[in-house]
Design a protein around this nucleic acid. Structure first.
Lengths: 205, 205
DNA sequence: GTAATTGGTACAGTGAGTGCAGTTAATACC
DNA sequence: GGTATTAACTGCACTCACTGTACCAATTAC
């Protein structure tokens, strides 16, 4: 048998070319957004710079803004994975808290570049808010899975997820601008939000 | 109909006609969004229904989506006014908390209609998030005015405002769908977030 | 009564995003 | 090896949100 050994999967020439096109489109998009501004950059310019047709751009990204954050999907997936895996955790809130705080370390260049771009190109903030909603949904789903699906649990899960993402968004963007220890501030505010003694359950449940 | 000197200004015929055009545009926009969906409604349809030209629509609203929430500006102004006025308050967080909770009462038909529309027309959620950011900015500005403008105060003000609006957004939308007491859940989570005991006065109005 | 202002119009244009019918090259199958 | 299939990409025509500009008509100011 021609054993199809594709544990991580052997990338075909096609897949590699597609990946390379996508990477090139995103790279030129980010560069042009930074250099000329978002509104002053047309999709056609991005496509030409990447050596493909305008139509191809929209085969890779649903909107012009989406090209600015090409790895968003993977990052959400990774976040969900870390939320659900790992050592059996004490309670969902402490797990959420430690995964969030751990995320501050893994800010390779990717997340820093993201916020640098955002502070430079304000028109992308809408796109940023839209991507944040994916995290909110992931967190809400995670909490509901542990708290049950009663009306109150659902409302509470959504409230907590929105609040938590709001805190992270504020500290990441503001701390980047102000040169502050975002992690420390986040840790404190999250501690207050999620219950400082992490073992203590939310009482009205 | 003579010499009726209004408190701020006597509305001229022009102003009244402009107001009426705006009202009509918004009304038909909301109706058409509800009936046919957001994407299936063109700006031209809205304009024709209101008896004006397409160009006129954009003299009243910057985007198609903005017509769905015509009173947004006034509502933010009103919110800021209530934040800053009133009896001299103990501390900014308790003031913020009581103004927010008081807002749950004054949800005349306006806010309920807003959320009914949102649950019916998901494409408007981006617009909703955009308008929420005005509240976030107002709250952050308010807190900074009381906490000072040190780097840490700024970060903290933004974190709190984002979190608070996140909680309100979740409870208002989810509670509307689940028929729950949004105010009670909000009160508890805000109490935990803002560090104020739940027994403090909720009335404030 | 005349002039300036204002709400609205007509028209032409830009650019994002979509549907569809190809073309070429990689891959699967025999 | 040869053939059929498929996947990335292209070209083109189209819709529609939104803008700039010149213009009209009615109101309001002087």
């Amino acid at each position: 048998m021609t054993t199809e050994v594709q544990s991580p999967r052997q990338p075909s020439v096609r897949q590699l070319q597609r990946l390379e096109t996508r990477r090139s489109l995103a790279g030129h998009a980010i560069r042009l957004f930074s250099e000329k501004g978002f509104d002053q950059t047309t999709v056609e310019e991005i496509a030409v710079a990447a050596g493909v047709s305008t139509r191809t751009f929209f085969l890779h990204f649903p909107t012009k803004a989406a090209a600015a954050f090409p790895d968003h999907g993977e990052r959400v997936e990774d976040f969900v994975l870390r939320l659900n895996s790992g050592t059996p955790f004490v309670n969902p809130l402490s797990q959420l808290r430690s995964v969030l705080l751990a995320g501050f370390d893994t800010t390779s260049p990717s997340r820093l570049a993201r916020y640098a771009l955002l502070s430079k190109v304000p028109e992308l903030r809408d796109e940023d808010a839209r991507t944040d909603r994916d995290y909110e949904e992931a967190i809400a789903e995670f909490l509901e899975r542990h708290w049950g699906h009663s009306a109150e649990a659902v409302v509470r899960a959504n409230a907590v997820s929105n609040a938590v993402i709001g805190v992270v968004r504020a500290t990441l963007s503001a701390a980047g601008a102000q040169g502050l220890d975002a992690r420390a501030v986040t840790a404190e505010i999250l501690g207050r939000l999620l219950g400082t003694p992490l073992e203590e359950p939310l009482h009205s449940m």
